[in-house]
Amino acid sequence: MIDFLLFAVFTGLLLHGIHRKAIARIQGRPGPPIWQEILHSLKFSFKETWIPATASEVLFVAVVLVALGIWSAALFILLLEGSILMLFGIYMLHKIVEHGLGLSSGSPYGKFGAIRSVISAASEIPLFATIGAIYFVTGSLQLSDIIAYQAANGPLLLLMPPVAAAMYIVILSKMHYSPFAIIEAKEIVSGNRTEHFGVWRAALDVAFSLKTFVLLYAFVLIFIGGIPFAAVLVLMLLLLLSLSFVCALCPMLSPYDTVTMQSLATALVAVYLVAVVVIA
């Protein structure tokens, strides 16, 4: 299990690197080498580290540990083919991590990031709609049952494309450089991560790489189903490249536009859900 966790960490960091490289190439820049994010995390972990004098010390450190803990847990839920309701729970708890990161330091930029993280809470609702739709169609939230259902009836991606699109938006809103990434926008320095430097930053990079790995892996398992692991990795890479295209070509939205877009996506899924229920 620990071997898979370490594999996921390094693959996740590599995926972040590929993401940056793809964005750079699309925008006509050379971009950093794809292993840059791995080197970055190592570099940050060697740097001088302290807790800011104004920070709430316990919270400042605890959110970093929580971030690592919840995404390792999420990875194991996928590995053991557990309940996607728990996965949904962990995704929501990530919100608290974002919030705690920003508020704990006392920095004004962190605070702005945290407040933006609260108002972009609309990104959680499409996921709720996704879970509801999957439960309605497959009759279970256990990942093993969902995979078995897809083995019998074909991938959910083809059965319910709007639900897959909703989850795609959810993943997109958590990517670096995404049009929805208002919480770490450059006009507020690094948003909620501004004050977490050095070792804290390295640990957060590890946690966020796990997050990227888990979200992409979950998308493939939930919407395409049980295929060999090598094929899963290839599909994750393709999914990531499609996300990179969106991130490279879309400007970052303003906070209110972000919320509007996410609410519209939720409304569309809700309409689709009602239509499915009525037809059934």
Binding site: S56, V58, L59, I96, H99, G100, L103, S104, G106, K111, A114, I115, V118, I119, A121, A122, E124, I125, S263, T266
Partner: peptide
């Protein structure tokens, strides 16, 4: 305090005392 009804909550979190506001 969830999505469409949380508007006032965003302003609440401006208050100091991060562990409590969290």
């Amino acid at each position: 305090g969830m999505a469409p009804f949380y508007v006032a909550k965003a302003e609440i979190t401006r208050a100091p005392g991060a562990p409590y506001v969290l």
